[in-house]
Design a protein around this nucleic acid. Structure first.
Lengths: 337, 337
DNA sequence: CTGTTAGCGCTTTCAG
DNA sequence: CTGAAAGCGCTAACAG
C-alpha cells in the first residue's frame, strides 16, 4: 500500500503535523526532529500525494506556461523555453502545463478564466508575445495569479530578459567594423517587442556610425523563412543593393541566404548575412550564420525559478537580465572590393 | 466562495452522490434528474475541483506526453503532436503534462517510476522513438499505466499510425513516373522506425519498377538539415550522380536543395528533390518541396482521444490508421534531357 | 434509480 | 517548538 505522511510520522516518532512541517520546509522544527523525519521519508521512500496536498492546502503545485504560437508555429523558440521552465518546475517538484492562448480570440479573457478555474495554477510563465498583452497581465493580477515573463517589453514584472537592443547594436557594429555601410534590416513580425528592439539596435548602431538609414533597406518580414526570402528578393532587386543584411531572426536570415543563392550572390563574398537567436539551423547552414545567441532554454529556466521562488515567498522575485553573446561565423565578411 | 458539488446537489434537489454521478457521466441516473443537475451546474457555474476528485477517486485527470527529443531537438514534429494531444485532453477536461525522457539514460526506468509516483498520470502518450522502446512499454504495463502510441513500429498497442512505407513507395513511384531511375535516398536517423519504413518503401518501389538499388545512392542522414547537406554533397560528388533524391524527411530535403545550389545544380531542372512530413518550411522553399503530408497534429489528437476513450472504458482502444497524402510541388520534375 | 456514511492524505487552526 | 482535532471537496461502498 501507499506510504502516507502518517507512516512517516510514526516512524520518526512525531505527529503528522510535524512531518508535514518538514515536508513543506516550514520553520519551527528543531534541526534534530527535521533530520529524523527526513530520514524516515527516505527510508520509506515516501512520495507526497499532490492531490491531497492541493486539496488541504488550497494550492495546486502547477505552473502553466502560456503562449501564443499562432504567428509562428514553426518556432523552436517556445520548445526551448518550455524545456527550461520544465527543468525549473522539476527542481521544485511542481508540474508544468502548456496552455496555448490566442490573443486575437474575442473570448481570450473567458478562456483565461476557464484555465484558471479549471486548473488553478499557482503561477504562470508568459512567453512573448503574451508578455506584452496588457489585458492578460491585468486579469492575472485581478485573479491574484503570480506570473513571470520571458522577454517582456517593459521590465515591470518578475522574469528574465536580454538586452536585445544592445545585442542588435553589437551585431550591426560587427558589420560596420567589416566596412559595410549599405546594411539592410529585415524586420520581424509587426507588433512584437523583439522586432522593435532589434530595429532600435540597428538604428542606434547606424546613427552612432554617422550613417543615415536608407528606408529602402529596411523591409518587413514576419520571422519565418519564407518571409526572409521574400524580403531579400526585394533587397537584391535594388539598383544599389546592400552589401550586408541583418535579419531580425535566424529563420529569416536563412531565407536571405537562400535568396542570395537564387540571385547568384555568394555569402559572404557578395553579401554578408546575419541573424538573431542562434537556432540549431544557424550552425548547420553553409556558411554557418553569424548571429546573436539567445539562451532561450536558460531564460525559460530562470523565469520558472523566479516564479517559484516568489511563490515560496522566499524572494520578491526579480527581473533578471541575461547576457547575450555574439556568434561570429562564416556568413559575414568584409565588403566586396 | 467556491461553488461545490453539494451546492449543485441542493439546487437540483438531489443528493451529492447523484450530482457526482452526473458529473462523471455515470449510468443509473434518470434523464430528468440528469437534466436538472446539469442545469444547476450551468446556473451556478460549477467548476469541479480536480484535486478533490483525484483524492477521492484515486485518479489524476492527467495525461503525460513522453518524448525523447535528444536526437533532434529542432524538430517541430513534437510540438505538433503536443498540440494535438492537448486538444484531445481539453476536450475531455484532462490536463496534459510534457515529460522529456532520455532513452540513453542509465536510470531511465528510475525516472519513469519517479514520474509515475510523483504525478500519477492516468495515461501516457508516447511519441517516437519512445514508442518502440521495449523496456518502457514493459514497465508501463507492469505499473498498469495506460498508454497510446503515435507511430509505433509495431501495431500491438492503441494509438495512431500512418502507412509510412506505402507513402514512401508512393513518392518514389512519383519520381519513377517522371522518368527517373537513378534515384537516391537519404536515410533518417539510424534506429528510428521512420527511417526503416521509408527505406522499405523506397526499396519496394524500386524493386517493383525492376530497378536494382545502387548502394552508393543510399546514404546515411540523421533527420537534420545539416545531415541532409552532408549526404547530398556525397551524392553530387558521384561520377554518376542521381537525377532525383528522396530524403527521409523535409529538413534533410531542404539540406539537399541547399547542397544542390552549392553545386550549381538547378532543382528540379538538374535534380529533383522530395522529402517527407510536409513541415511548414516545405511550402516556403523555392521551389516548394514535393513531400508526403504527415498530419502530426491530427495524429497527436487521435492518439490522445484513443487513450482517453480507453481510460473511460468506453472502447477497448484501437490502433487507428491515418491516410497520407502526397504533396506534389515544384521540386520534382522530369529527368534532365 | 437514489441516498447515506465514511473516508481519500494532507494541512489548517488552535492549543499547549 | 510540537500536537490534537477538524476539515478541504469529492467519491467508494454499500444500502435501499
Amino acid at each position: 500500500m501507499r506510504v502516507r505522511l502518517e507512516d512517516v510520522a510514526r516512524a520518526a516518532k512525531v505527529s503528522p503535523k510535524t512531518a508535514s512541517r518538514v515536508l513543506n520546509d516550514e520553520a519551527n522544527v528543531s534541526e534534530d526532529t527535521r533530520k529524523r523525519v527526513l530520514a524516515a521519508m527516505e527510508a520509506l521512500d515516501y512520495r507526497p500525494l499532490s492531490s491531497a496536498r492541493s486539496l488541504a492546502g488550497n494550492r495546486s503545485f502547477v505552473v502553466a506556461m502560456l503562449y501564443d504560437n499562432n504567428d509562428n508555429p514553426t518556432s523552436t523558440y517556445l520548445a526551448e523555453i518550455q524545456d527550461g521552465v520544465l527543468e525549473a518546475c522539476d527542481a521544485h517538484r511542481y508540474s508544468m502545463m502548456m496552455r496555448p492562448l490566442r490573443m486575437r480570440d474575442d473570448d481570450f479573457i473567458r478562456r483565461l478564466d476557464a484555465l484558471i478555474s479549471d486548473h488553478h495554477p499557482d503561477g504562470v510563465v508568459l512567453a512573448p508575445p503574451l508578455t506584452d498583452y496588457a489585458p492578460l497581465l491585468k486579469r492575472l493580477r485581478e485573479c491574484n495569479v503570480a506570473y513571470a515573463c520571458v522577454s517582456p517589453e517593459s521590465g515591470g514584472c518578475i522574469g528574465v530578459r536580454m538586452d536585445e537592443q544592445a545585442a542588435a547594436r553589437a551585431i550591426v557594429d560587427h558589420l560596420l567594423g567589416l566596412g559595410h555601410t549599405r546594411i539592410a534590416h529585415v524586420l520581424g513580425m509587426d507588433g512584437h517587442g523583439a522586432s522593435r528592439w532589434r530595429l532600435a539596435g540597428y538604428r542606434e548602431a547606424m546613427a552612432a556610425a554617422g550613417l543615415a538609414v536608407n528606408k529602402a533597406l529596411v523591409v518587413q518580414g514576419a520571422f519565418t523563412f519564407g518571409s526572409g526570402v521574400a524580403a531579400a528578393r526585394k533587397l537584391f532587386a535594388l539598383k544599389n543593393r546592400p552589401t550586408a543584411v541583418f535579419a531580425a531572426n535566424d529563420d529569416m536570415a536563412a531565407g536571405v541566404m537562400w535568396a542570395a543563392n537564387e540571385h547568384g550572390l555568394k555569402v559572404p563574398g557578395d553579401v554578408s548575412v546575419c541573424g538573431f537567436d542562434d537556432i540549431p539551423l544557424a550552425s548547420q547552414l553553409l556558411p554557418a550564420l553569424t548571429t546573436v545567441r539567445q539562451p532561450s532554454r536558460e531564460m525559460g529556466r530562470v523565469a520558472g525559478l523566479q516564479l517559484l521562488e516568489s511563490l515560496r515567498g522566499r524572494s520578491a522575485g526579480l527581473m533578471v537580465q541575461i547576457p547575450f553573446a555574439l556568434q561570429l561565423r562564416g556568413s559575414t565578411g568584409s565588403i566586396p572590393s
